[in-house]
Design a protein around this nucleic acid. Structure first.
Lengths: 188, 188
DNA sequence: ACCCTGATGACAGTCGCTGACATCGGTGCT
DNA sequence: AGCACCGATGTCAGCGACTGTCATCAGGGT
């Protein structure tokens, strides 16, 4: 066995989420997180850029998943449909971890700093989607508009999914919201 | 005359923007800002919640302007058209202060923390727009979708306006982007 | 045996931000 | 005039997030 307990990063992330739920984000110090994980404060900052980032470990994988989905959409698919398919497929991922998503989102929604971080992660997803569309030959500003629309749909669908205990199907909400968006933007 | 120089808040905001431009946001300490304004660090934090907020003083007025525009739109206007008119009218406001907007945006774009703050301000605008639509009888999720779409259009139009020295007309960019959004969401 | 690498600890220091209390012109009341 | 009060600011102490730097030391390769 190694010199240290394995998976320091994971232990830090678990300890952080637990403490954020127990006492709230602001009332938790990084030193406490590190102590619960059996490490020091300095080591926390070697694994995470700051106290918020510990909650957003999965966002890189999410971005890759979205980009792959757009890239892999049939060539014939319209930009908005490639985006819709990608966002819908993300819905399936979250459905498998609803409880975990609920806990995490409760912490984030309770704190403005964490909301800011969440928003910039969503903006990064939007930028990545727009890039994937451009690589498919979609010009600007259509690429960015389709990407932003997709992220907006996801954001709204996700909020509804989190807020409604009786709704297990995030993908369905995403599909409905896209449909609703088409109706809304069609105008009068 | 009063006991102190007038307009402490304005002096602080001016000093902050100047220093952020001169040395960069991170390289500027709050103590330096306060000193340049002839005040103390403690007084800075009595006027602004944190070091970033000093750049976002106008966002309340902007929110009120948008809400008023949506509220004042003709009853017959479709939700997306009420939003479009509101966002377009904001374009006019910015056109009058293009130089100031350019300086401010250069600082914000150079720093991730400031970008986060900007995004949460935009999210607040979106929430306010959605609320104004709901008061007009627009149900959810249509209200939030239209509001998010409007903010997305504004964001993209604003970026293009800032980035293109030869384009003086932000309102026109907004109008074109709305048109483009309709085309994009119409799908294949 | 040897060295080297990589994850961690230890420690000092900067800076954002807050709470508590003091200061003192200006304002209004008597 | 005299006085009490108010409100914007100053002063000071302190916490906690984050960083730079150097030390430590098991494990792997040579």
């Amino acid at each position: 066995m190694g010199r240290w307990e394995p998976n320091a990063r994971g232990r830090l992330a678990d300890a952080a989420l637990d403490l954020y739920i127990e006492r709230g984000y602001e009332q938790t110090t990084v030193a406490e997180i590190a102590r619960r994980a059996g490490l020091t404060e300095r080591t926390f900052f070697r694994h995470f850029a700051d106290k918020r980032e510990v909650l957003f470990g999965g966002s890189d994988a999410l971005r890759e998943h979205l980009v792959d989905a757009v890239t892999g959409a049939p060539e014939s698919a319209a930009p908005i449909d490639a985006i819709a398919a990608a966002v819908e497929s993300v819905g399936v991922l979250f459905q498998e971890r609803r409880e975990s998503a609920l806990r995490r989102q409760a912490v984030i929604a309770a704190n403005a700093e964490l909301l800011e971080r969440e928003l910039i992660k969503l903006a990064a997803l939007s930028a990545a989607l727009a890039g994937a569309l451009r690589r498919r030959g979609v010009p600007e500003p259509a690429a960015s508009l389709a990407a932003e629309a997709g992220i907006a749909v996801f954001k709204i669908s996700f909020e509804r999914w989190i807020g409604d205990p009786g709704e297990p199907d995030l993908s369905r909400l995403v599909r409905e919201s896209f449909h609703e968006l088409k109706a809304v933007t069609a105008g009068a």
